[in-house]
Simulated assay, not measured.
Amino acid sequence: MVLTLTTIDNQQQWRNFFCQVDELETAFDILSGIVQRGSQPVRASLRDGNGIIDLPLDIFNNHPFSEPIRILKKEWESILAQPLHKPVVQELTPSEWFTRLLKAKQNRIENLQKTLGQMQNLLLSTKKEMAKGPYKTRLMQRYQSSIDRYADLLAQAQLSYTALLCPATSD
Rank of each mutant, 00 (worst) to 15 (best):
N61F: 02
Y161T: 06
L84S: 04
F65C: 08
V35C: 07
T93M: 11
L123W: 05
G33Y: 02
K127P: 00
Q156Y: 07
I109N: 06
F98R: 14
S146N: 10
L5F: 05
I8P: 01
L165M: 14
A131K: 04
E23V: 04
Y150R: 08
N50D: 12
N107Q: 13
L123E: 09
Q156V: 12
R100F: 03
V89W: 05
R70V: 05
R142E: 10
G133A: 10
I71C: 00
K128W: 06
D48L: 02
Q82R: 15
R108E: 12
L92P: 00
T6R: 02
E23L: 09
D148G: 01
L3T: 06
H85W: 05
L139N: 03
L46H: 02
T162C: 07
I109E: 13
N50F: 10
M140H: 02
A44F: 04
N62Y: 10
Q13G: 03
F18H: 14
E91I: 14
T7I: 15
T126P: 01
L122V: 07
N62C: 05
P94M: 13
L46A: 03
K105R: 12
P83K: 10
T162K: 08
T4S: 15
S125I: 02
Q141D: 13
A27I: 07
S145Y: 04
K132P: 03
T4K: 12
L102R: 13
Q36H: 11
Q20T: 14
K128Q: 13
I53V: 12
A44H: 02
M140S: 15
D171N: 09
